[in-house]
Each structure stands twice: as structure tokens, then as C-alpha cells.
Design a protein around this nucleic acid. Structure first.
Lengths: 144, 144
DNA sequence: ATTGAATAATACGAAATTCGTAGTATGTCT
DNA sequence: AGACATACTACGAATTTCGTATTATTCAAT
């Protein structure tokens, strides 16, 4: 559309750096709480959103080697957070599903993430909240 | 101020997840390019912003153990990206400063980050760009 | 001036993580 | 049935993180 000025870009970059730091803190506390590492939490989130997904799906999504994902799944299974199944349809693959305990960990993470989002919106008055959402939606859509 | 609705929060969370993924990709490519890991890049950014800072400052900022930061500094020194000096004022501490080569790596990272920000702004028309910036600034300020 | 405590970092080793190579099991195609 | 592709696991090397112990320096109190 139109070229934003370097000043505008710079301002946005600084603001987003702050937001990112905020989210990182939220992630870190969720990670600590369940003694999971960053990869395992991200894998858990994906598996929660994609029940019966395969190992390769998660690896591709998170851009890690398949073997890395296999290790991650080992850890998650050991901690009773996911289950590995061999589907009859294609017995080479594994279908990953989240357990109750895994869902609890996801909830903890998501709650933290949403709390951060809530705090952000609360900095604005209702009219600006709606406006801010409209704009983020527009950007997110454009992103596809 | 006013309570945002759960739907609003959810929408914002989803949008921000996308943004975060975008930034991660940018970081990953900067990391690959200079064969640095995520911690080392973040350390480099901090050192660039805080010349002559001490090891402990960086460790505190990045929330890692001091020994971890020491290892990171080893790597960055080995790759000629920072310099360790013993300041006369307090010879127990080290003063970290970035080198030209380090600055190049920072530039690469920052460029990628800004490119992401630029792409976001370009999704909006000029009026909305200004409006979006106003709102992010407001949130970032509130964040303190 | 000396001793003791506090500060700031490094040395070293254990545990965990990532990833590449090789291997196994299953499915598909001719 | 055989050859090739797919999906994953086993294993080991390299890297990273972090805790404990140690070194060097500064500060404070006597």
C-alpha cells in the first residue's frame, strides 16, 4: 500500500520488542511451572490444536528436525502429557493426542498469554480497544 | 480502565501469536546467517545498546545464570563480536563492548526485525498506520 | 594496616538438548 | 514379489545451560 516512514517503523519495532519481552516472561513462567522446555510447550500447543496429528506435522510447524521432535515426544510421553498411537490406517505414522495433564499445562500457558493480551487492551479505552483489534485483525489477515 | 471481553482477548491472542511467529522466523535467519544461537544474539543486542556493560547486567536482563552468560561471552569473543575489558575502576568486573563484526550481526538482526514491522504497517492504509502506531505507543507506555 | 566479608567473574563437570546418520517398519506401485 | 518411498526411532557427537567451587578484587571494620 503506502510506504511507512523509517521513524514509524522504528517506533513500532521498539513497541513490539517490549510486547515480545512480556510474552517471553509469561512463557518462561509456564515452562518453569511444569518443568518443560520451550520446544515441548510449543509442541504441546500444536498437538492440543491438532489432535491425532503426526510427528512430522509438529516438526514442520516448529521447524525442527524430525529426530528433535521425536525426542520432544519422548519427554512429553514420559511426563504423561501426550499419547503416541499407531493408527491402523497408516501404521508407519504416530498419532499424537494430548492428555488431561498436558491440557493443564497448555491452560497454564494460554492463561498467561491471554493475561498479557488483556493487560495490553486494558491500557486503552473501549473505543480504542475496538479500533486496535480491528487493525491487528487486518494485519494478521494480510499476513497469510 | 475497562474490561475487554474474552472474545476480544482471544482475537488479540491469535493475532499476536502470528506476529510472534513472524519475528521468530526473522530471528532464526539472522541466527543462521552468523551461526549464533538465540542467547548470543540477544546478548549482542543488549551489549550494543549498553556499551561497557558488565556480564552480570546482561545475565540479569536475559534472565540466565551468570555462568551461562560467561560462556556466551566466550563464544562472542571467540567470534570477534565483542571485547572483554577489565576496567581500572573496578577490576573484578568486565566491560563488554561490541566490535564492528558484532555490529554487523546486530544490523542483520535489526534489519530483519524492522522488515517485519514494515510489512505489518504496509497492511494498513496511511490513516490506519498512524492510528495503529498511536495505539501501540499508548500500550507500550502503559507497560512500564 | 590487616582481616573478613562481599562482589564479580571464571573453571569445570554433569545433565539436557539438538541434530545427523543409520536402521526399522510399513505402505505403494508396477 | 521387489523396489522405492514414507514415517519414525536408535544412537552418538557436538553444543548449551547451569550449579558448585575457586580466584581476584574491593570494601568495611577494627
Amino acid at each position: 500500500m503506502t510506504e511507512p516512514t523509517p521513524e514509524q517503523i522504528e517506533k513500532l519495532a521498539i513497541a513490539f520488542e517490549r510486547f515480545t519481552r512480556r510474552f517471553k516472561v509469561a512463557e518462561a513462567s509456564a515452562v518453569l511451572e511444569h518443568s518443560l522446555n520451550a520446544l515441548d510447550i510449543q509442541a504441546l500447543l500444536f498437538i492440543d490444536d491438532h489432535p491425532e496429528c503426526r510427528l512430522g506435522d509438529v516438526a514442520r510447524h516448529l521447524q525442527v528436525a524430525l529426530t528433535t521432535m521425536s525426542s520432544s515426544a519422548d519427554r512429553l510421553v514420559r511426563r504423561d502429557m501426550i499419547e503416541r498411537q499407531r493408527p491402523e490406517a497408516n501404521r508407519r505414522s504416530v498419532a499424537l493426542t494430548i492428555t488431561n495433564k498436558g491440557q493443564q499445562a497448555v491452560s497454564g500457558y494460554v492463561d498467561g498469554y491471554r493475561a498479557s493480551c488483556k493487560a495490553m487492551l486494558e491500557a486503552l479505552d473501549p473505543v480504542d480497544q475496538t479500533e486496535f483489534l480491528r487493525l491487528t485483525q487486518k494485519i494478521a489477515k494480510y499476513d497469510d
